[in-house]
Amino acid sequence: MKKWLIHDSWRHLIGISISLFALFPLYLVVISSFSSSGSLQLTSFIPKEISFKNFHLLFNNPAIPYLTWVKNSLVIAGSVAILSVVIGSASAFAFSRLAFKGRKTGIQLLLLVQMFPAILAISAVYVIMERVYKFAPAIGLGTQAGLLLVYLGGAMGVNIWLLKGFVDSIPAELDEAAKIDGASAVQTFWLIFVPLAAPVLAVVSLLSFIGTFNEFILARLFLVDMQNRTVAVGLQQFIGGQYSQNWGPFAAGSILASIPIVIIFLSLQKYIVSGLTAGSVKG
């Protein structure tokens, strides 16, 4: 036997066994999505057939508006990702760079607020948006616009906090030099900070995108209408009722919806890990 195999065998043993643990559910979903039985059963490890029935069902069954759900998720998560970073980075810049009264208190308050788990205020959000619905049906409970606003507000705390940490790390000499050259705060922000921070802004916005895409319970409470749902809510409701029939399309649907997220995640791994070590945990 080769030397490396003997010497490192315990490492490979651990690596392989835990990899199997990691892969097992994912493998199961993949073979279920290509099986025609429509259940999440483990009949054999090697699939006996490859059927596209589930994928076909997903796109052609009017009772499952899967593409609409995907579109909803993309629109909502995309808007939150862009808007929260645009608004959040301006606030972060102010907190990090500009001198004003009560800045310290503001930062401490921000720290406390971003620590508040959104889920704890969920009944309050629900009741408030129910009341908003009575005078503004377009942005109240049950609407995507309302959900978007709630997400946007919720993303603010963490995003301002993360981005502030980044702005702090940009050397102050840069904007001092700009100031001496006569640049206003607004110019410093747009001409110095934004170009420098562009990669970080992209990462934070993609993180917001993943976080929003993954959000479940608010979307569940808000989006009652079938056509309005996000992928997560749609697919969950879909297997909620009848048990084994719907697992096939569910498997197909969740794989398709997961692929972009997994790709984004893997390509951002480095940033995500460093962002996490800065003290936040993915939901």
Partner: peptide, 8 residues
Amino acid sequence: PYAMPSVM
């Protein structure tokens, strides 16, 4: 497992 959307 970490990259997959956890809801799914």
